[in-house]
Design a protein around this nucleic acid. Structure first.
Length: 737
DNA sequence: GGTTGGAAACTTTTT
DNA sequence: GTTTCCAACC
């Protein structure tokens, strides 16, 4: 018996197909990672050197998991397989060869904050009114251009005589110039510059083509044009390209993901083998059927239907609550119920929502209930002010050309160096064609600085002193010295507020992270640490072993699975989001929202609960949203709208506290009240909830629910023979019996 | 050059 | 409701 006998026929075919292009359309939970790691094992068994195998993912977490699983599967050589994210792959290549593009190999990597700082400066230089063109807008235009591999020059040419577009191209050009001056790349540049490098230097490309003879790309549906180009170049020689993806899980179009990369793969690679993995090993039949029904409403997808041999499972629960508070209470009550009955641990539950802002209520209620939780997303650890400050110091030590970093910390803590001084230094640097930091070093020579000039010297002396210690002392000691010498920690300690305490804790955590890096890295360097830190996402910090309820956005949940999933805020305007409904192309955006819904549903292994609130505070305003259309797309046979816990309410378990039952009771009462209000409004109908009615085709049945639509009443009837149906009153012509 | 108060913006998603 | 930004003061 070999390790491959555990695979199903399609999985096996995908594993054994090693030569030439291969597209694996892997539905949710169909074991795609399993296929990838077995494929790596198989390649090695066929005599392929692990050194010639590359697997690319999007998150460090996915890469780490894959590496782990390959390690477990193959005895030797797993370490030599290149398993990395797109971005870290590019960084590793660029750190060696970016000299060919006129950058220094110590380049900095700019995050969104840094980009914004550069953009602000660009707008100032070009006299762009940021009230008309917001920095964020300009940044997104530039980012989209980079995703499509459009250079500033190409953008300018494409603009023609369109003055506004020309202006955007100008901003793009200046932004790139600034980055180059700072010896920095933004996230998009990492990909773009690597493509550029390969196109400019065929000999470097060929070396990597030789190295990566077998390429595998995970989550292929999320690749953008630049990433596709990168892969195509690498696979250009041997054409052993295996991509795994699911067009139904493409949820990053807004970030430039090009869904045609997957939809047109067979056109670009006519000899591609296509294998569909449709057997799901994760979810119950009910969950899977629900997912299938929802995604069926999308056009322009590759037809596939997931099936499973798993049990039918419980129906999907839908709960409409009066407000968001009760929504949070219901979900958290359900979770503690599971844990108290020892049905599951906290870590088996994930609460998913559309926007990060929705997490607050859940956090509050979880704290009140004393339930441990982990929040994914929101403000990234490395984006916090104190962390960015320390990192900016370290960046300055590492790369003096990083003007954004220098400017960030020159006056933190306060050194009495203000805007006027900085402008003079900036002008001087510009006039003499030197870097900003260099100008600071020569502060004495700058005219008109007066006393302020003297304030600069302690700063540059500190940086120089730290620079001199690089490689001599550990990074941890260097950082501690930095905190000491600048008085950064002291200032926070003196403040004594809760907030300051939190910041100090974060700094301690940063120091532990530096220590961990120094222990684990083969050759720890400051650049190495800064690079690692620049590319981590919040999701990477998710540990499987800790017992927490997980809170995260639907986007972050992609690729994960939990026994119990709660999808909160199933309301029009929230999910699907207001933006998608009122954007430039609502049809397309709505399909992406629906895919996001599909991703959410398919995260659930055992049970899925969907919730909505009639009333909700958004940005300090009370909103009344209709129930999400996605709920209506789920056929009633899979949905259970009552109170699933009724079973336990009728038959209360001894350890169940009365308060819990009471809150459930009150919820039920309120829900019922609202229902009867709706019914009263339905005065145009001769029947009401509970009445027996007759349909010309379906026969006799009982009215379950009447909902008021825009033009018509929607009537839900439980027919004796035909089952539960949802009908429009004007079409159904129901007769009261 | 630093501090403060009030207005304005923000919220779709992130490597 | 919260955070960010900016103008007017010290």
């Amino acid at each position: 018996m070999s390790i491959y006998d555990t695979l199903n026929p399609e999985q096996k075919e995908a594993v054994l197909h090693t030569e030439g292009p291969l597209l694996i359309l892997a539905g949710a939970g169909s074991g795609k990672t399993r296929v990838l790691i077995h494929r790596i094992a198989w390649l090695m068994e066929q005599g392929v050197s692990p050194w010639n195998i590359m697997a690319i993912t999007f998150t460090n977490k996915a890469a780490g998991e894959m590496r782990q699983r390959v390690n477990n599967l193959v005895a030797q050589g797993a370490d030599s397989v290149w398993v990395a994210t797109f971005h870290s792959t590019c960084v590793r290549i660029l750190r060696r060869y970016i000299g060919h593009l006129g950058f220094d190999t110590t380049f900095s990597i700019y995050d969104t904050d840094d980009q914004k700082a550069v953009m602000k400066d660009v707008c100032k230089r070009l006299n762009i009114d940021t009230k008309i063109y917001k920095e964020r807008y300009l940044m997104s235009v530039i980012s989209r251009a980079k995703d499509e591999l459009i250079s500033p020059l190409e953008m300018e040419l494409a603009a023609g005589i369109d003055w506004q577009k020309k202006r955007l191209a100008e901003a793009y050009k200046e932004y790139q110039a600034q980055l180059r001056r700072n010896n920095a790349l933004d996230f998009d540049d990492l990909i773009v510059k690597t493509v550029e490098l390969f196109q400019n230097c065929p000999e470097i490309l060929e070396a990597y083509q030789e190295r990566f003879r077998y390429l595998m790309v995970d989550e292929y549906q999320d690749t953008n044009t630049a990433q596709f180009k990168l892969i195509s170049l690498l696979a250009g020689k041997y054409r052993n390209l295996c991509v795994v993806g699911d067009d139904d899980q493409s949820i990053y179009k807004f970030r430039g993901a090009n869904i045609y990369n997957i939809l047109n793969f067979e056109q670009v690679f006519p000899d591609a083998r296509v294998i569909k993995l449709e057997q799901n090993y994760r979810s119950t039949q009910n969950i899977l059927n629900t997912a299938n029904e929802v995604i069926r409403n999308n056009y322009g997808r590759k037809e596939k239907r997931l099936w499973t041999e798993n049990e039918e499972g419980n129906p999907i629960a839908f709960r409409l609550l009066p407000n968001a508070f009760e929504e949070a209470e219901l979900i958290i009550g359900d979770i503690s119920h599971h844990v108290r009955n020892r049905e599951a641990d906290y870590q088996d539950h994930a609460i998913l929502y559309r926007t990060n802002a929705q997490s607050r209520l859940f956090e509050e209620k979880l704290i009140m209930a004393g339930i441990p939780y982990k929040l994914i997303g929101g403000v990234n650890f490395y984006a916090r002010r104190e962390i960015k400050d320390i990192l900016a110091y370290l960046k300055t030590v590492d790369n003096g050309r990083d003007e954004v970093a220098v400017r960030r910390v020159i006056n933190v803590p306060k050194r009495g160096i203000g805007a006027t001084t900085l402008n003079r230094v900036g002008d001087y640097a510009g006039a003499y064609g030197i870097g900003f930091y260099e100008a600071l070093v020569r502060a004495d020579e700058i005219p008109g600085l007066g006393r302020s000039g003297g304030k600069i010297r302690p700063f540059t002396e500190l940086i120089e002193a730290l620079r001199g210690k690089l490689g001599k002392t550990s990074l941890v000691d260097l950082t501690k010295e930095l905190l000491e010498a600048t008085g950064y920690s002291k200032e926070l300690e003196a403040e004594g507020t809760e907030e300051a305490k939190g910041r100090l804790e974060n700094i301690d955590e940063l120091i532990s992270k530096i220590a961990a890096y120094e222990e684990s890295a083969k050759e720890p360097t400051l650049s190495g640490f800064l690079e690692e830190v620049a590319l981590v996402a919040d999701i990477d910090s998710l540990e499987e072993s800790s017992n927490y309820v997980i809170l995260m956005t639907l986007h972050s949940a992609k690729g994960l699975e939990f026994p119990y999933i709660y999808m909160a805020g199933m309301e029009e305007g929230i999910f699907p989001s207001y933006m998608s409904l009122n954007g430039e192309n609502p049809e397309e955006d709505l399909e992406e929202e629906r895919r996001l819904c599909y991703v959410g549903i398919t995260r659930a292994k055992r049970e899925l609960m969907l919730t909505a609130a009639r009333q909700r505070m958004i940005r300090g305003q009370t909103m009344y949203n209709a129930v999400s259309r996605f709920i209506r797309e789920i056929p009633d046979e899979y949905l259970e709208k009552g109170n699933r816990r009724e079973r336990t309410a009728d038959n209360p378990s001894p350890q169940k506290p009365a308060a819990w039952a009471q809150s459930k009771e009150s919820f039920r009462a309120k829900a019922y009240e609202q229902k009867s209000i709706t019914v009263n409004k339905a005065s145009g109908l001769e029947y009401t909830v509970g009445d027996r009615v007759r349909h010309i085709k379906f026969g006799d049945g009982t009215v379950l629910e009447i909902t008021e639509g825009k033009k018509d009443y929607e009537v839900k009837v439980d027919f004796d023979t035909a089952g539960v149906k949802r009908l429009f009153a004007s079409f159904a012509k129901l007769k009261k019996l």
